Amino acid sequence: MNILQLEKILNEKLSPQLIKDYAPNGLQVEGKPTIKRIVTGVTASQALIDKAVELNADALLVHHGYFWKGEPEPIRGMKGQRIRTLIKNDLNLFGYHLPLDIHPQLGNNAQLARLLDIQVEGGLEGHPQSVAMYGRLAQPITGAELSAKINRVLNRAPLHIAPDNVDKLIETIGWCTGGGQDYIELAVKHGLDAFISGEISERTTYSAREQAIHYFAAGHHATERYGVKALGEWLASEHGLEVEFIDIDNPV
């Protein structure tokens, strides 16, 4: 498959043109023109690039790519080494950030809901492109039970900030993968029983305690493994490409 054809397929699937983002979505570093083998992963770290080179990949497809707003512009140091490795090995880099968070089937939020058996009901921001979602569990469970389930499913123990009424059952739940901790305020306004995000801030603890909502910080990396993995599996099944997901350990 031609590189521009692959970008067109990805853009048609994820519609990045409809979303205001913090980094360019699509082809970020151009390499060889023909794509047969793709490596997918969460972040275009040096370790992931090196693994893609080792596997003779033609393209690297990630959720966290490069050229973020506000980052230093010079291509030097760590950034320079990463991009030199890509260019030296003729390796294409595709990055999709918010489009891969919010896609209704392949997105990080949709995949987390699937893994945790949450029935999606809508977006916390009140529109289909909301970065944060809300939904309902099939049966109410305790905070300890949900914490154990998150641990089992994501293979990472979450940080659980419980309300004073620790036995308060959870049926309605909001979530936002990655750095979505501040959407907890919208979760409270919706009257939800719990909220899950990847990261936590110091202020989030008090927000959860004082507003009597269960809060779970499940890890930025851990909650965002599944969108890019699902996207790669879709490319393989629908377009016959050879795709392999590589999980570079990150405890954050």
Rank of each mutant, 00 (worst) to 15 (best):
H220F: 14
L18R: 07
T223V: 12
P99A: 04
I35C: 06
H63P: 08
I184Y: 09
L124E: 05
A144E: 03
A194W: 03
E54G: 10
G41K: 01
L235N: 02
S207D: 13
E125K: 04
A113E: 09
L241Q: 00
Q17I: 04
L93V: 01
K149N: 06
K8P: 09
D247V: 01
N165Q: 09
R84P: 05
P24A: 02
E54D: 11
V153A: 08
K8E: 15
L146E: 02
A218V: 10
E210L: 14
E185N: 15
L154D: 10
V188S: 11
G191S: 11
G191K: 12
G240N: 05
I9G: 08
P128D: 05
D117C: 09
N250C: 11
I213Y: 05
G191W: 11
L116K: 09
D247M: 03
E12H: 13
V62Q: 04
D193I: 07
D50I: 08
T223W: 13
S45L: 11
M78S: 14
G232F: 02
A236L: 01
P33C: 14
L4Q: 15
L137Y: 03
L55M: 07
G123P: 01
K189H: 13
R203D: 12
Q5H: 15
I196H: 07
Q211E: 14
H221N: 15
H160E: 03
E202I: 11
K189R: 15
S15P: 05
I102S: 01
N109V: 03
G180Q: 08
K36Y: 06
F94K: 03
H221D: 13
G70Q: 11
K8W: 12
T43I: 12
L159I: 12
D21Y: 01
A110D: 08
S237V: 05
P99R: 04
A162E: 04
T205H: 12
K8C: 11
Y215M: 04
C176H: 07
G123E: 03
L100K: 09
R114K: 15
P99H: 03
W175F: 09
L235S: 03
H103I: 06
A222N: 12
A230S: 07
S197C: 09
G240A: 05
C176L: 07
G31S: 02
K32N: 13
L93Y: 02
P74E: 14
P72M: 10
M78H: 15
E125D: 04
L98H: 01
G232P: 00
T205C: 10
Y66Q: 12
I173P: 03
H221F: 15
I200A: 11
G198Y: 13
G126V: 00
E244T: 02
G65E: 05
A57L: 00
V166T: 03
